[in-house]
Nucleic acid binder design. Structure first.
Lengths: 135, 135
DNA sequence: TTATAATAATTGACATGTCAAGTATTATAA
DNA sequence: TTATAATACTTGACATGTCAATTATTATAA
C-alpha cells in the first residue's frame, strides 16, 4: 500500500474522532469552526461563499449549517451594501459570549489531544494541507 | 489563535476536499476505505467493531455504510464460527475487481493531490495521527 | 445598451453518519 | 450453575452534509 493513501485514511479517521470529541456548549466542531472563522475575519463577518471556501464545503452545506445557528440567535444575517445577492453571517452578542467560552474549552481539550506536537512540525503539516486546493 | 486549533481546522477542511474528490467507480472515499481495510486485513474479512475502530466511526455507522455495499454484492456477510453475535464483512469476487480498479485510480489521483510530500514527512504526520486515541 | 454568462444563495431529494435504546449472545464472578 | 455485566450488532430519530436545479442579481462582451 502507498504511504500517501495510508495518510489520507488516517486523516479521515482522525477527523471522525476529532469531530466527535470536540463538541462543546451545544456546538458541533463544525459549528465552532464557523464561529471561529467569522470571529477571526477582518470585519467579523463572512459570506456563505467565503465560509464555503475556507471550510472546504459547498455553499449549500454552509447555508444548511448556518440556518440553525441563526434560529438560536448565535449568528445573524447582514446584507451587503453593494451586492444584493450576498448575505453575511456575523456573531450576535450572545454568539460572541458563546464563542469565547467554547474557544477556551476547546483549546484545553486540544492540548489534551495533541500534547507533544512541536510548532515546527505543525507548520510543516499546515504547508502540506495548504497545498491541497479545492478543485 | 493557537496553532493546534488551526491544524485541526485545516484538517477538517482537507478531509472535506478529499472526500469530495476521491470518489470513483461508484464508491465514496469511505466506501473505498472499507474495501481497502478488508483487503489489507490478514484474513480478508473484518467485523463491524473492527472496522469501526480502524475508521474512527461508531459501530452503528459501519452497519449503515456496509448495508448498501452488500445490496450491490460488493461485500458479503460471513458468520463467525465461534461467536454468533459477530458478523464479518468480506469482498465478493466482484468486490475484489472493483477494489482493484478503484485502488489504481485513487492512487493516481492521490499522487496528483500530494505530489511533493516526502516519505519521512508522511511518517512524522502518521505518528502524530496514531497518537490520537478514540476515547 | 443589451443579451449572455457568471456569481451568491437557496431548495428538494438523498447520502452518510451520530446517539440512545434494544436484541441476542458471550464472558465473568458469586 | 446462574445472575450480572459486557460485547456485537441493529434500529429509530435526527444531524450534517452533497448534488443538481432554481432564483435573483451582477459582470462582461457585442
Amino acid at each position: 500500500m502507498t504511504k500517501k493513501l495510508e495518510l489520507l485514511i488516517q486523516l479521515s479517521k482522525v477527523n471522525s474522532i476529532i469531530s466527535r470529541r470536540l463538541i462543546s456548549h451545544g456546538l458541533s466542531f463544525s459549528d465552532f469552526i464557523i464561529l471561529h472563522l467569522i470571529n477571526s475575519s477582518r470585519e467579523k463577518k463572512l459570506k456563505r461563499v467565503e465560509l464555503a471556501e475556507l471550510m472546504g464545503l459547498t455553499a449549500s452545506g454552509v447555508t444548511r449549517m448556518i440556518l440553525p445557528l441563526e434560529k438560536l440567535h448565535i449568528l445573524e444575517k447582514m446584507d451587503d451594501a453593494t451586492d444584493a445577492r450576498a448575505k453575511y453571517a456575523k456573531l450576535t452578542k450572545a454568539g460572541e459570549e458563546l464563542y469565547k467560552d467554547a474557544n477556551t474549552w476547546i483549546n484545553l481539550k486540544i492540548e489534551d489531544l495533541l500534547p507533544d506536537v512541536k510548532k515546527n512540525e505543525i507548520n510543516k503539516i499546515l504547508n502540506i494541507f495548504y497545498s491541497i486546493k479545492n478543485e
